[in-house]
Amino acid sequence: MEEHINWMSKAMVYAEEALERGEVPVGCIFVYEDQEIATGGNRVNETKNATCHAEIVAIEKVREWCSLRKKDQQDVFRALTLYVTVEPCVMCAGALRQIGVPLVVYGCSNERFGGCGSVLNIAADQLSSLGPSFDVIKGVLAEEAVQLLKQFYKGENPNVPEDKRKPKQISILNKQETRL
């Protein structure tokens, strides 16, 4: 557990960086053979691509890491642990499953989009075309992850058009606006 907390506090740094960039504060790291090989934070606004979540960013970096070291990316994918501050959404859970990541550790739940049990259970459901199911450990540094989200939703997301913006919300988790 202590090991999980250590890795998660590193992932939290990337969530904080996302917040500083004005993105939804979600951060993650991939751990391979006890070392951090890729990190990611949300970059939706920057790329104008709503699918540019922390996990997708980090998966791309794993691929770069593999090609630099001439490692087979499939072998590496299948030996990874993902630490992510918020439960992966349905999309990211689908992505993780397709590349075959066996273990995902996350902080707080994602009530609106969560793909590891909150909305759908992409992690465990029978989906033969999507690759093997993966294990999930939740609740690691959840409170810290929630605090960051609260900070974000206290301010406005400048990239959401005026008419789409909602009144400021303090009760956050059921109002996760755009993209976790």
Binding site: A50, T51, V90, M91, C92, G94
Partner: peptide, 13 residues
Amino acid sequence: PCPMCSMALVHSR
């Protein structure tokens, strides 16, 4: 679309 892509379409509004 698969579940990943389906949610990608939701995110993309």
